[in-house]
């Protein structure tokens, strides 16, 4: 496992880099990699989504926020600086090949990481993502190629959540969203948030899949 922190990066640049890491992982040229980043403002639509979930297109157009169709699972979400995005490139070829189990794992490790930040988040049966008080705080959309994972999850840390009210998050008109900043009443250091989520992920990946952390290579 190695960690790559890209900082704040344009959506296309991030996806190009992810594609490169994914291809090299499939070819066994590199070890599993946890990509951490913050996207420039962008709306992304997963495979099962249409633009009908954008309520107020003019709001995003006026801010020059692009709308991008992605090859990840899931529906629509909004990304912006202050939101932590994690793209784990993990080889499951020799592991349990079960996509639901992997999504369960992502949710569980995020709930534990939130706990480390002093935020009591939870999973909800038959609903994907991570929730606090009925509001969604982390979103999942993954891809699997040759049983190597890509894409992953996004976690509202300090980002402005107002734009979520201009879409139907995850394609659902009832979903309200929140952030760590809203829950704690203050912003937290992104570097600290990244470390908490990355450390928890590495620890849980070993417990769940027996994948050992080889350090930052």
């Amino acid at each position: 496992m190695r960690i790559r922190d890209l900082g704040i990066v344009g959506y296309k640049d991030a996806i190009d880099l992810q594609e490169n890491v994914l291809r090299r992982r499939i070819e066994n040229e590199i070890s599993d990699t946890l990509i951490l980043l913050e996207h420039d403002p962008v709306l992304t639509l997963g495979r099962m989504e249409s633009e009908a979930s954008i309520i107020d297109r003019a709001f995003f157009d006026k801010k020059n926020i692009p709308v991008i169709f992605s090859d990840r699972g899931g529906k629509i979400t909004y990304h912006a600086p202050g939101q932590l995005v994690i793209y784990p490139i993990v080889d499951l070829r020799e592991k349990k090949r079960d996509v639901s189990r992997y999504i369960d794992f992502l949710e569980k490790t995020m709930v534990r990481a939130f706990d480390g930040l002093g935020v009591a988040a939870e999973r909800i049966a038959d609903r994907r993502g991570v929730w606090i008080g009925g509001k969604k705080i982390a979103f999942i959309g993954v891809g699997v190629r040759k049983w190597v994972t890509f894409h992953g999850a996004c976690i509202n840390i300090n980002n402005d959540i107002a734009p979520f009210s201009r879409i139907h998050p995850c394609g659902e008109d009832w979903i309200k969203v929140t952030s760590v900043r809203e829950i704690l009443g203050r912003a937290i250091e992104m570097d600290m948030a990244k470390k908490v989520f990355a450390d928890q992920f590495i620890k849980d990946l070993e417990a769940e899949y027996g994948i050992k952390n080889a350090g930052n290579i």
Partner: peptide, 12 residues
């Protein structure tokens, strides 16, 4: 490519 609610998978 197939998709579940939150994942896409390529089938070879």
């Amino acid at each position: 490519e197939v998709t579940t609610d939150k994942a896409t998978l390529d089938i070879a």
